[in-house]
Design a protein around this nucleic acid. Sequence first.
DNA 1: AGCACGCCGACT
DNA 2: GTCGGCGTGCTC
Length: 727
Amino acid sequence: MKHDSFETKAVPVLVPMPAERPYTYAVPAGMSVVPGSIVRVPLGPREVAGIVWDGPGEAVDARKLRAISHVFDCPPVDQAMRRFVDWIASYTLSPPGMVARMILRAPEAFDPEPWVEGLQRAANDPDRMTAARARVLEMASDGMAWTRSGLAHAAGVSSTVIDGLKAQGVFETVMIPPRPVVAAPDPTYGKAELIGDQDIAAKELRGKGEAGGFSVTLLDGVTGSGKTEVYFEAVAAALEKGKQVLILLPEIALTQAFLERFQDRFGAKPAEWHSDLAPKKRERVWRQLAEGGVRVVAGARSALFLPFKELGLIVVDEEHDPAYKQEDRVFYNARDMAVVRGHIGGFPVVLASATPSVESRVNASQGRYGRAVLSARFAEAALPDIKSIDLRRAPPARGGFLSPVLVDHMRRTLEREEQSLLFLNRRGYAPLTLCRVCGHRFQCPSCSAWLVEHRFRGQLVCHHCGHNEKRPEACPECGTLDHLVACGPGVERIAEEVVGHFPDARTIVLSSDMMGGVKRLRLELEAIAKGEADIVIGTQLVAKGHNFPNMTLVGVIDADLGLANGDPRAAERTFQLLSQVTGRAGRTGKKSLGLLQTYQPEHPVMRAIVSGDAEAFYEREILEREKSALPPFGRLAGIIVSADNRPDAESHARLLRRAAPPARDIHVLGPAEAPLAMVAGRHRFRLLVQGDRPADMQGYLRAMLANGPKIRGSVRVQVDIDPQSFL
DNA sequence: AGCACGCCGACT
DNA sequence: GTCGGCGTGCTC
């Protein structure tokens, strides 16, 4: 008898939980695994999917060692992807297991898709011929295999007809491979005519694709300049080289229009990947991507962790969009991770935006990224003329929020039978409700934010946690009836005012809490594009990518909103949002206008929007400020990045400053801002604090705080991670 | 992440 | 007397 078990191998396996390193598992005799194999392993009381990692498994107590129970029949996770996981884990200070978990989120796809039963014409002829049978035979005369229901449907007969023919041996059963989830894109299909800047940019991107190797290009083009058509050329180049392509989009669920544009160019839709995807479809996309059947994926940030077989290009559209940041579990920005993935895989990355982020601008200006600029709008689409309305000089009527100047322009737009868009980034009727008698303010019981009145629903709603309650008639504090007063505007309230001014206009409100969900929203957007509304009042979601050909006026109700909330990126964010919103106007060739209602028309953001000079704005207002606000590296003892929230980090920082001299000069930044600081000031992480597991923080804190008060949350220390070390 | 264990408060 | 809250610890 042989004793192979003495030779039993042990391999490291990353399991989908917050382990700092792979666990070691035994490979049973007769089983073979390679690094990257997706396996099922016992873990505590359950079984989980894990990934065989590189290197020999570290020695582990024989009593603890357990065996891999199954190897999935699935292409192994390739080396580039494994390095990517390790890189992200070390960069984000996350346990590698948690990063691996993001790859393992299509559990059903690890087994091959089953072949389906199909029917194919066999030798026998039917005993009697009927009209229905004739139609079926006609359909099946091509000799191809059909599914039972597919054939019945195509021939317009009931499936019992098929069953009858099968029983007579007219059809035989054959197994057919699973249907591709999307058709193959054709890079030569609908090639667009590119002119001027577009042509130059497209050639540059194509050149980088054809040359191969890692590169990053910032494609910077105003709304309507044909950015998408330009980067489609890079996609075509990658497809021609036989590579797969990933296009990242910030909010894929609402980007139906994008899929259609892609289809117009490539003759087929890309595969979609986002959290709302039906589970069955999810599995099929995952599997066919791993096997190389799917060539292009358009997806949300999680698509970075798909098992591409031969990825050769990543495009990050709207690269500045905050939706690319994941802010739970593993904290990462998909835009930056896309660059890392490109570096590891040795292929080009394209970052596209009309309003590039500070980080990307700096990276481009310092030569780390290439830059292609599309300065003009495509064809006859002119940029809108943008002006600010000084609310101190032209204030709204009492109780209203629309300046007479804006109302006047709306009237003229209506008379020309064109559309107006009013933008206010605030859902509901009023952001605050108070009692005129006792001053009581309605507050959320669980998070203490103001409750927002939603008059249409008759509710008070917390926009932080979703808590909602019925709007009472009387003040809960003093009991006085009918003295509750709504303070400030939300979109519902603006709609009320608009209807007061223009009772005959077709007015519609668009916000994310609209009844009927995403489907209804999509329909409404189409209806508006077809001209079925005169005045649209909308929140942030109208700023994203939709085209309204007859929209010639955009009014921003409160351009100052968001400038005073303490966010270090407030000015940049506001600039981006206002650029995008005003960019909704003027894609028609008609003269169009953007109006900003503001109390501070001299604010740099307003001036930048009005003048259209983004470069100067970024150079003077963002970068210079950023550099002067942060101390140079030599003086910087630490940057604290709070994984949870800012107050948490602030309290940590106070304690650390008090506790230990090396940590005196500590700056608190949200997880989103740390990369910004590092890029702008060329800083390095010295210290990272995460509010999370008390157990993790003790070692460090004990050293730092001889006798300080207790800190809630965890502290982990990481020295000298250079965010640009991959470049 | 999940799950078990364990220790204190309010109840069928 | 139990049920159940979540704090703590463990998983190869």
